[in-house]
Measured scan of single mutants.
Amino acid sequence: EAHAAIDTFTKYLDIDEDFATVLVEEGFSTLEELAYVPMKELLEIEGLDEPTVEALRERAKNALATIAQ
């Protein structure tokens, strides 16, 4: 499951495998979680700032909209 989540994140969020791995290690496994989890939870991840989190959430929401079509 972790590998599938990493693949999904790299494909749809335009991030590298290392960043995707950090997200999975922090407990995220779906685009929905990244799109809708409280921003505070993402900001608790070391190295993430508000602009990065906002961009990540926007990419996740856009990916979900694209997949739904």
Rank of each mutant, 00 (worst) to 15 (best):
E1T: 12
E1Y: 10
E1F: 10
E1P: 12
E1I: 13
E1L: 12
E1M: 12
H3E: 10
A4W: 10
A4R: 11
A4E: 09
A4L: 10
A5V: 11
A5S: 09
A5R: 05
A5L: 10
I6L: 07
I6C: 04
D7M: 15
D7T: 12
D7K: 15
T8K: 08
F9R: 00
T10N: 04
T10R: 11
T10V: 15
T10I: 15
K11I: 06
K11R: 10
K11V: 06
Y12C: 05
Y12R: 02
L13S: 00
L13R: 00
L13Y: 00
D14L: 12
D14G: 15
I15C: 03
D16G: 09
D16L: 07
D16V: 04
D16Q: 06
D16S: 14
E17K: 15
D18F: 12
D18M: 11
D18W: 14
D18L: 10
D18E: 13
F19V: 10
F19Q: 04
F19K: 05
A20F: 01
A20Y: 02
A20L: 02
A20I: 03
T21E: 07
T21K: 15
V22K: 15
L23D: 00
L23G: 00
L23W: 01
V24M: 07
V24A: 08
V24G: 02
V24I: 11
E25K: 15
E26C: 11
E26G: 15
E26T: 14
G27S: 01
G27F: 03
G27D: 02
G27P: 01
G27I: 02
G27E: 01
F28R: 01
F28N: 01
F28M: 03
S29Q: 10
S29D: 06
S29V: 10
T30F: 04
T30G: 03
T30H: 04
T30I: 03
L31D: 00
L31A: 01
E32F: 11
E32S: 07
E33N: 06
E33H: 13
E33T: 08
L34C: 02
L34W: 03
A35G: 03
Y36P: 00
Y36S: 13
Y36W: 10
Y36Q: 09
Y36H: 10
V37W: 11
P38T: 11
P38S: 13
P38L: 08
M39H: 07
K40W: 13
E41S: 09
L42W: 06
L42F: 07
L42A: 05
L42D: 02
L43P: 04
L43C: 05
E44Y: 11
I45G: 02
I45L: 08
I45S: 02
E46L: 15
E46R: 11
E46T: 15
E46Q: 12
G47W: 10
G47P: 02
G47H: 05
G47E: 04
L48D: 01
L48A: 04
D49C: 05
D49P: 03
D49V: 03
E50N: 07
E50C: 09
E50D: 06
E50Q: 12
E50T: 09
P51W: 13
P51Y: 12
P51D: 13
P51R: 14
T52E: 05
T52V: 07
T52F: 13
V53H: 02
V53G: 11
E54D: 07
E54V: 14
E54I: 15
A55R: 12
A55M: 14
A55H: 08
L56V: 04
R57M: 08
R57K: 12
R57G: 03
E58F: 06
E58M: 08
R59W: 07
R59C: 07
R59S: 12
A60P: 02
A60Y: 02
K61D: 03
K61N: 06
K61R: 12
N62I: 14
N62T: 13
N62L: 14
A63I: 07
A63S: 04
L64W: 03
L64C: 03
A65S: 09
A65M: 11
A65K: 11
I67R: 05
I67A: 06
I67K: 06
I67L: 09
A68C: 08
A68K: 09
A68G: 09
Q69N: 11
Q69G: 11
Q69P: 06
Q69V: 07
Q69S: 10
